[in-house]
């Protein structure tokens, strides 16, 4: 089994503006705990078919985090979002039906924003251990860190340390990009490849 497969974590989450406040600490926590987050928006290539990209990422990851916190329509007339559910199905299907034995070792964490809300939308998941972050970034860090700690074979920093360091990281990101001609809102909306590049470099340098 390749080392990359056992360190890759597939992130199946919404990509809307509101979710960015949760997505960023989620990515930080995974990387800070010495794993490698993989997300569909990690590269921007318009010629790439999205579902093919997602399938390739799922096959490259032993671990998955699925966040159901935005599956509910927020206003009248808004379409119910099904991408997250589709990708959970793909990930579970990969584990169940792929003949390569390494996929039987896949593990996942399912998150929700409101306790037991998933049971109304995806009742087939009843009985699964779904964790709730209450739309709170700090709570999300704690839940994700606790899940990672259940299987990694190395010591992880505590949840408070990860949360404080995430805050410190934001300061360095802000300082660096401001110095390079970015405005505050442009920094907050950095595209994912650029954000991930800075995040990876920062954490690697912290460890030196």
């Amino acid at each position: 089994m390749s080392d990359l497969f056992t360190k890759n974590v597939f992130i199946n989450c919404p990509f809307d503006e509101k979710y960015r406040v949760l997505l960023k600490p989620l990515l930080f926590t995974i990387k800070y705990c010495s794993l490698n987050p993989r997300i569909a928006s990690e590269r921007m290539d318009s010629s790439e078919v999205r579902i093919d990209k997602i399938q390739a990422i799922i096959e490259a990851c032993k671990y998955s985090i699925h966040d159901l916190s935005r599956i509910k329509a927020t206003e009248k007339g808004e379409f119910y979002r099904l991408n997250i559910a589709l990708e959970i199905g793909l990930d579970m299907g990969c584990k169940l039906y792929n003949p390569d034995p390494k996929y039987k070792t896949k593990q996942s964490l399912i998150l929700e924003g409101e306790k037991f809300s998933y049971q109304k939308a995806l009742s087939d998941l009843s009985g699964s251990d779904v964790r709730c972050h209450h739309d709170d970034p700090e709570q999300l860090v704690e839940e994700v860190r606790a899940w990672l700690a259940s299987f990694v074979e190395w010591d992880l920093p505590g949840p408070n340390t990860i949360w404080y360091e995430y805050n410190a990281f934001n300061m360095d990101l802000f300082t660096e990009f401001t110095a390079n001609g970015f405005k505050k809102d442009q920094i907050e909306q950095l595209n994912m490849p650029e954000y991930l590049r800075y995040l990876n470099q920062w954490i690697d340098l912290k460890r030196v």
Partner: peptide
């Protein structure tokens, strides 16, 4: 520049 920022953490109160 990143290393410099990381190393100057003691100068900042969050």
């Amino acid at each position: 520049s990143m290393k410099k920022l990381i190393n100057s953490a003691m100068e900042r109160l969050h």
